[in-house]
Design a protein around this nucleic acid. Structure first.
Length: 929
RNA sequence: GGGCGCGUAGCUCAGUCGGUUAGAGCGCACCCCUGAUAAGGGUGAGGUCAUUGGUUCGAAUCCAAUCGCGCCCA
């Protein structure tokens, strides 16, 4: 019987709204195809942009491997920025790019060759690297586009493009012209078998047995008479072959050093290691005759145990007193710390070992011996002959080895190329430029300021194959360097035409212009530099080579947006090149985000098994869920991600989706042009809803301006769940379902629903790009503000708050009504629990109150009909208001008198009064009658 | 070891200038509805604000130390 009336209601129909189940993994690619079809990116650039350009310059990810969650976080946030600016009246060209050159790809490709037993030429290796890079550009591009990113994906920038490579060479030339480029010595880890320098990442620490020796350096000068007769400084080393390069002995200024008398000689070593050392040396008969603070030893000079030269005692705080003697034998040519100590004290950099690990003439009697094992043996023998060797034993430890050929490595001091950071007031200019930039979060400014203030000169050269060759020559006759800015431009032209492989493929003459001569010896015979540029030079050049070369872009960028590690990386290298060539920062604002950690706040790693893969998330849950997670995070700090967190975000997604599903479902027969009511004709609760919507919109705009999407996420969830689902939409159901389709009561409700839908979809479009498009396409097309006719929600403008709809007095009034509602809910819950009523629908709520609250509530008549607003707001069938003395609100919950209307389900006294429809209330009887 | 940060309910986040009993949504528990239904509604329980010490009439908030976590270096 009751079922008969179902058909007379205006219930939303499933096929007139979006499906409850989103099925994003399948649906999202369809929307992406649609955007390609309408060329969304181009249309975004062509639409009116009253606020001008907004240039977000994309930091290039490295074209190696699949994307990980850090990429996803970064690119999704960039996409939200680009889209939200586009929807707020800016023109937002976004050109994604990739960083292609560099060690990781070269190593991966080298290993492939190695496995095939092939030894490629440099050019063959480079070509394979290029193919490898292209492959991963394609892979990552697909994975990025699957996240729903909008941008010029058909024409990204690649640092290995010929034009880009030529541009890098030209920028290097500009720095040469401005006097920034020089050559100097630098210690590097070197593989004598591969004859190449290794980066820290290529070093593998493996067990090795070394020759550990104790050596006594006789003191020859002791200006302050701290030490006794025949004093010797005692050192310990596991690399005897570095003894010929010894130039100093280094002690810790704060350590206590002991003078140990043993036989004729006195040994100086750190006090805490006297006992074990003496035991090792087999000197049982000894006595500590005094102590000296390390810093006091400054000025003491020893003699080299083999050669006729001095070895002064110097100070450094990296000295340890855990093993050895607390005195570091220092060979500036063979250690990083040794090198910098040597530099600080003005020692020469002696490196008597060639690239094959063989002693040079500088090693005197050891010349032509390989450093191991022959060199070691010869040095030990010679020390022994001289009586300087106190002990020798094999020593097991972890030692750096070559990742490729597994040979033990050595430190060599080599000549490298540098960019000076202090030339031409460069550092001061950079620090000044940093102050002009807006850093978000603001701590970023502290971080990069410290970095730039303390950074050493930039080592630009790498002994590698997969990079842009440094365009320098050496005279074949006298070795003089040829570095000429005009010649460099000429080389850049060639590279622009033929790619940078040509540098490795063609002889020097190919690049030299007519009449080039060595300025030293006038020779015309040259060889090319074989080093390549650091890849940070490539990416540090993108602002010049992308922003300045693309007509749709401009220099400087409005925004750089990357992980906080880029303070040292890209922000830094870009700034160095920008200051060095243009005396200005390449960005106006820099925003950084944190790292993606697991649910416990620990770093994700394969070995821990706590990695969440963005591609998998997209496949299982959809890009919109991933994007919603991104926007739920306070990303200025590190963010957390786990399956549990994703589950909660998926719940949030469903709640937002269902809210919109309900709204859209109730707009199926609504034509805004024809049916919308003017604001003034809307009932109060509808005007309240619109006023609240304006507050939501104003808040949303603030969050977009502050890049604080997580605040929008939270507010949206609260708005949808609390204000819409739990309240307004629930209250609206009677009007939407039971009133006549074209009645003003229903049309006014729909007018508000339409406003809500068109506002929410546009506000959320930058985040839930696919879902909001889906909703948009389902919305009535006729427009009230010129926006609804757009073929895609992404081409619309974000709704601005209607200030005239923001009625403050009304909002305050309803704040009180909602507070009363909460009290009523509690009373109804109690009545329900006490079995006085089965459910709210069968209740009558009687309010008794005096004073201001009575006056306020009395504005709303409480007839026993569907018109009773308070009853609808409270979610009960009937409500009454009676005046009382007390200002304290009394709430009575009673069974509602009357019968339940078979159509609208309200319990009303007038059910049965209509003879024709005895099971209906008057309102319902009239409507279907 | 150094530089820059972070730590508020199970989760994600608010918390103004130091000022009542530290808030929200979700989740959870119990209940209602069955005309948003692999939906919707109601009520409720959850916190030593990482720890310790200090400044203050008063500290989640300011200071110091410790612990834990992250990024960048050594």
């Amino acid at each position: 019987m009751a079922q008969n009336y179902r058909e007379t209601l205006n219930l939303p129909k499933d096929d007139q709204t979006i499906p409850m189940r989103a099925n994003l993994p399948e649906q999202e690619p369809r929307w992406q195809a649609f955007w390609h079809e309408i060329d969304l990116y181009q249309r975004l650039l062509e639409k009116p942009a009253p606020n001008g350009d907004f240039i977000l310059h994309d930091g290039p990810p490295y074209s190696n491997g699949n994307i990980h969650m850090g990429h996803a976080l970064n690119k999704v946030l960039k996409d939200v920025i680009v889209r939200s600016y586009a929807m707020r009246g800016y023109r937002t060209p976004y050109v994604p790019g990739w960083d292609n050159h560099g060690m990781p790809i070269e190593n991966a490709v080298s290993k492939q060759f190695l496995q095939q037993g092939k030894t490629p030429t440099k050019v063959e290796l480079r070509q394979a690297c290029r193919e490898y890079a292209h492959h991963f550009v394609k892979v990552q591009r697909e994975q990025f586009e699957r996240l729903g990113l909008v941008g010029d994906w058909d024409k990204p920038y690649l640092t290995m493009d010929y034009a880009f490579e030529a541009g890098i060479v030209r920028i290097f030339g500009e720095l040469v012209r401005r006097g920034y480029i020089y050559r100097d010595l630098r210690p590097v880890l070197w593989c004598p078998v591969c004859q190449t320098a290794l980066a820290e990442a290529e070093v593998e620490y493996e067990p090795k047995v070394s020759d550990a020796i104790y050596v006594a350096f006789p003191v020859v000068r002791d200006p302050n008479h701290l030490l006794g007769e025949k004093a010797h400084i005692l050192i310990w080393t596991t690399t005897p072959w570095t003894i010929p390069a010894n130039l100093a002995l280094v002690v810790h200024p704060y350590f206590e050093y002991a003078r140990v008398k043993a036989g004729e000689r006195e040994f100086v070593l750190v006090k805490t290691l006297v006992e074990p050392t003496m035991e090792t040396l087999g000197l049982n008969d000894y006595a500590v005759v005094g102590t000296v603070k390390g810093e006091q030893l400054m000025g003491v000079v020893a003699r080299h145990p083999i050669f006729d030269r001095e070895s002064p005692v110097l100070l450094a705080d990296y000295v340890l007193a855990e093993e050895g003697t607390g005195v570091v034998h220092t060979a500036p040519g063979h250690g990083a710390e040794d090198f910098y100590t040597g530099k600080r004290y003005g020692l020469p950099i002696l490196c008597p070992v060639n690239e094959r690990g063989v002693f040079t003439e500088e090693a005197g009697e050891f010349a032509n011996l390989p450093i191991t094992p022959e060199g070691n043996k010869a040095v030990i023998r010679r020390l022994s002959d001289k009586g300087a060797l106190l002990h020798y034993a094999p020593y097991h430890h972890n030692y750096p080895h070559c990742w490729r050929c597994d040979s033990p490595l050595l430190f060599r001091t080599t000549v490298q190329w540098f960019m000076s950071i202090d030339h031409n007031r460069h550092r001061e200019k950079a620090l000044e430029a940093i102050r002009q930039v807006r850093w978000l979060p603001p701590e970023g400014e502290t971080r990069i300021t410290a970095m730039v203030a303390n950074r050493p000169d930039w080592t630009l050269s790498r002994q590698r194959a997969w990079g842009v060759g440094i365009p320098a020559f050496y005279c074949e006759d006298c070795g003089e360097v040829l570095l000429d800015p005009d010649l460099i431009d000429h080389i850049a032209d060639i590279i622009g035409r033929e790619g940078s492989d040509v540098w490795f493929d063609q002889p020097a003459d190919y690049f030299l212009t007519e009449g080039v001569r060595c300025r030293q010896c006038a020779s015309n015979r040259f060889r090319k530099e074989t080093d390549v540029l650091d890849v940070w030079f490539d990416s540090g050049s993108t602002h010049r080579l992308v922003l300045e070369t693309r007509p749709e872009l401009r220099w400087p960028a409005d925004l750089y947006f990357e992980g906080s590690d880029q303070h040292r990386g890209w922000f830094n290298s870009s700034l160095m090149i920008a200051i060095g060539t243009k005396d200005q920062a390449p960005y106006r604002m820099v925003i950084t985000h944190g790292f993606v950690l697991d649910g416990e706040g620990r770093k994700m790693s394969k070995s821990e098994g706590n990695v969440v893969d963005p591609n998998e998330v997209v496949q299982k849950m959809g890009a919109d869920v991933l994007r919603l997670w991104v926007c739920s995070c306070e990303y200025f700090e590190d963010v957390r991600l786990s399956d549990e967190i994703l589950k909660y975000v998926a719940d949030a997604y469903r709640q937002i989706r269902n809210t919109l599903r309900f709204i859209v479902g109730n707009l199926a027969d609504f034509d805004p042009h024809r049916d919308a009511l003017p604001f003034e004709q809307l009932p109060e609760i509808d005007r309240w809803m619109l006023a609240r919507l304006q507050e939501y919109l104003a808040y949303a705009h603030r969050t977009y301006e502050g890049f604080e999407y997580h605040r929008l996420y939270h507010e949206t969830r609260r708005f949808c769940n609390v204000e819409l689902s739990a309240f307004y939409l629930d209250v609206l159901k009677d009007r939407l379902y039971a009133e006549a389709p074209d009645s003003p009561k229903r049309r006014s409700a729909q007018t508000v629903l339409y406003e809500l839908a068109t506002a929410l979809t546009r506000i959320l479009a930058p985040i839930l790009v696919h879902t909001m498009e889906e909703v948009w396409q389902r919305l009535p097309k006729a427009s009230t503000d010129g926006q609804a006719d757009m073929p895609s929600v992404h081409l619309t403008e974000m709704p601005q708050p209607h200030t005239e709809w923001h009625d403050k007095a009304l909002l305050e009034r309803w704040e009180q009504i909602l507070a009363v509602r909460e009290q009523v809910n509690r009373a109804v819950e109690t009545a329900k629990n006490e079995k006085r009523i089965p459910n709210p629908q069968s209740a009558l709520v009687r309010l008794a109150v005096g004073g201001a609250l009575y006056e306020l509530l009395n504005r709303y008549p409480t007839p026993p009909t569907p018109e009773n607003l308070l009853a609808r707001v409270f979610g009960v069938s009937q409500a009454e208001l009676v005046p009382a003395e007390s200002e304290e609100l009394l709430i009575e919950v009673l069974p509602a008198p009357g019968a339940k209307c078979a159509r609208c389900w309200l319990v009303l006294p007038d059910v049965g009064t209509n003879a024709e429809y005895p099971d209906l209330c008057e309102r319902c009887a009239e409507i279907i009658g």
